[in-house]
């Protein structure tokens, strides 16, 4: 009879603060409603009934960066858009995460030219890269779950 079983019978669960906060963060992550190009259409498809990203507690896309904690950079980022994107990132409250969805956001994909930022990691720190042009909704969901795994491993000592 360990302590967990006894407290469990009493209706109490013991855990660490770190684990509990990480669990809460992964299961109610609010992405920002921010579509740029083709990948945004697949992001919409991921929210639609067939793929239904709300299974992972993410159906609530916030239009304001101040209410969101995940930025999905869905599409190509032009040089004109780059300062806007950085400003949006700066407006998001901590803790915040960034997913670079698709080849363009990750490396600028097929467009190696003057107009595009060659990978969004030049302007904001990226947690998860998703390949594909555009990635399938399953690919996006896999990226989101990968991010969840990452968030679950975050340390109390690293919190800002």
């Amino acid at each position: 009879m360990g302590i967990e079983q006894k407290t469990g019978n009493m209706g109490a669960v013991t855990t660490t603060l770190e684990q509990m906060v990480n669990w809460a963060r992964t299961n109610s992550m609010w992405p920002m409603l921010f579509g740029l190009a083709c990948c945004a259409i697949e992001m919409m498809a991921a929210q639609a009934p067939t793929y239904d990203v709300s299974r992972f507690g993410m159906e609530l896309m916030r239009a304001s960066p101040r209410q969101s904690d995940l930025m999905i950079v869905a599409g190509r980022v032009s040089r004109k858009m780059a300062p806007v994107l950085r400003q949006l990132y700066d407006q998001m409250p901590e803790p915040k995460w960034v997913i670079a969805m698709g080849d363009c956001a990750s490396t600028s994909g097929v467009f190696n030219n003057y107009a595009l930022v060659q990978g969004v990691d030049e302007i904001v720190p990226v947690d998860v890269y998703i390949s594909g042009c555009p990635p399938r909704p399953e690919g996006l969901i896999h990226g989101i779950l990968t991010l969840h795994e990452k968030v679950k491993r975050e340390k109390l000592s690293d919190w800002k």
Binding site: C38, K80, Y114, A115
Partner: peptide, 27 residues
Amino acid sequence: FLHTGIEKNMEAKTYIKAEVMTDRADY
């Protein structure tokens, strides 16, 4: 805000390869 330089990129590719750019213009 989404200027991608698609037309210029197409000039740097052969007629066959330039076609992949047209998909991404109007997605």
